[in-house]
């Protein structure tokens, strides 16, 4: 069983066109450790899944702001080899 990937705690953004405040959470994309997607949630409940380019194009981060890093261990995200080992009933080590 692979560990769940925790979401980044919400970060406040403003939509450039409307000025609406948006809460953005980020999460890793399975299979690509450098790829992230973001869920932009409006106060009305609308939510959109956006990538970095859309986030940068249409939203601006609220500043000043304190951003909280998500809680995670630097080894709890399985690599391809670890996933393969798990599929075959193996266990893995991060070192």
């Amino acid at each position: 069983m692979n560990p769940a990937t925790p979401e980044q705690p919400p970060i406040l953004f403003t939509e450039n066109e409307t000025g609406e405040r948006v809460s953005v959470t980020s999460i890793f994309v399975w299979g690509d450790e450098n790829k992230r997607m973001h869920v932009a949630r409006y106060a009305s409940g609308r939510a959109f899944l956006v990538d970095d380019s859309v986030l940068n194009l249409h939203f601006t981060i609220v500043s000043p702001q304190e951003v909280v890093l998500m809680a995670f261990g630097h080894g709890d995200r399985p690599t391809a080899k670890q996933r393969e080992a798990e599929q075959h009933g193996g266990v893995h080590s991060i070192v």
Partner: peptide, 25 residues
């Protein structure tokens, strides 16, 4: 997993106690 704009001016990044773990499985 931080959005790119977190590196803009005026931002503080914090890690609460327990948030950063070094692990050996």
């Amino acid at each position: 997993s931080l959005p790119s704009q977190v590196s803009a001016a005026g931002i503080s990044i914090t890690a609460q106690p327990g948030a950063l773990q070094l692990q050996l499985a």
